[in-house]
């Protein structure tokens, strides 16, 4: 997942809080627990984030990410670059 515009500087914790808040607002606390999101990795200079979640709730998490319109006062959107079944495959595809 990457922010757009790409040149915007965002704080990692702000991004993560925005995702959590958007998911809670979309599906509630129990839905949040079902999705069980977890921040795995932050790319250097914050170009990308890797998030883990329950495989049955991927679409819900993506929907919550699509609903984000501003982070830390900045008008941004978050683009989902890739969805993968395993972390190993994901990191391979992203060429970490």
């Amino acid at each position: 997942m990457k922010p757009f515009p790409e040149d915007v500087r965002l704080d990692k914790s702000d991004v993560w809080k925005a995702i959590q808040s958007s998911l809670r607002s979309l599906v509630g606390t129990l839905g949040y627990a079902d999705a069980n999101p977890y921040l795995i990795r932050v790319q250097k200079n914050l170009n990308g984030l890797v998030i883990r979640c329950d495989s049955k709730q991927v679409r819900t998490l993506v929907a919550a990410i699509a609903l984000i319109k501003d982070i830390g006062g900045e008008n941004v959107s978050l683009d989902v670059i890739r969805v993968s079944g395993t972390l190993k495959a994901m990191l391979k595809k992203l060429k970490y």
Binding site: R59, I65, A66, D79
Partner: peptide, 8 residues
Amino acid sequence: EAACLINA
């Protein structure tokens, strides 16, 4: 993303 949103 858009399809996931309508799905949700």
